[in-house]
Design a protein around this nucleic acid. Structure first.
Lengths: 134, 134
DNA sequence: ATAGGGCTTCCAGTCACTGGAAGGTCAAGG
DNA sequence: CCTTGACCTTCCAGTGACTGGAAGCCCTAT
């Protein structure tokens, strides 16, 4: 399987597959003409990587997950720990975004949004005479 | 005011202030010795930028917000529109993270997390015989 | 023979900083 | 006067995870 077909089957751009090979996430053989040759096993790894990335795992996490995936004697606890740490990061990120959202919604609500220059959003950003907001 | 004092008052690292100057977000005068000299007005802009960045606005948005901030004849509607677009992006991001969170929680819940290699998380990532999950 | 599509490598750019090296400046202490 | 240490300066490189583009080889069909 060459890189184009592999890209179609995995859903990953060819560029990304080359990049994954470059950083050592996957390895590909070569045909006589120099084209990359992917086995079914390589394709499965790429699909695995695509799924992991789409769930927000970092490349570094993916590297660990992939090695656990390939390790027949792994402990599922290791996978679970990695995933739980990732969940913690996601929860933190959501909390941060929700805090921004709350502040911004308050500001937007106060702003009449017309042709006049008076604007509580800009005043809020200027941070003059603020009290409670973080 | 030199950069160190300005950093303390604005809460931004000196490196960041230099970077903001480099990309033209703020301008600073110079003392005879070549040190940057910040006015109170520069400091206010930096505080403004710090607040805007902490609310997730991009540098490009900050540039627009700053020019609106300095434009005494602005229309508050322009600020509101910018902010609402940003809120839309935040909501989308939160939704994405929550979708990841839901999938990951389901997988973690299924995984017993012990010394055995059997692991529903890895199986889920391998995307074999999956049905409903996105 | 040529046109097209796919493949290769390599380099640069993204975003918003951040770290570090090499060196100038200034105030205080010996 | 000299040194020490904390400032400041510039410039270069690296981060994460790709993405775009240029230059050029390969393969198939017409």
């Amino acid at each position: 399987m060459n890189i184009g077909e592999c890209a179609r089957h995995s859903g990953l751009p060819a560029k990304t597959i080359r990049y994954y090979e470059e950083i050592g996430l996957v390895r590909a053989g070569r045909d006589a003409n120099g084209y990359r040759a992917f086995s079914d096993s390589d394709l499965h790894k790429l699909i695995f990587l695509g799924r992991a990335r789409s769930l927000g795992f970092s490349i570094d996490d993916c590297r660990k997950l992939l090695s656990l995936y390939e390790d027949r004697s792994r402990a599922s606890a290791d996978v679970k720990t990695l995933t739980e740490e990732h969940l913690t990061r996601i929860a933190k990120k959501i909390a941060e975004l929700e805090a921004m959202q709350a502040t911004l919604k308050t500001l937007v609500h106060k702003c009449h949004g017309d042709a006049r220059p008076d604007c509580p959003i800009l005043e809020g950003l200027a941070a003059e005479n603020r009290e409670g907001a973080s």
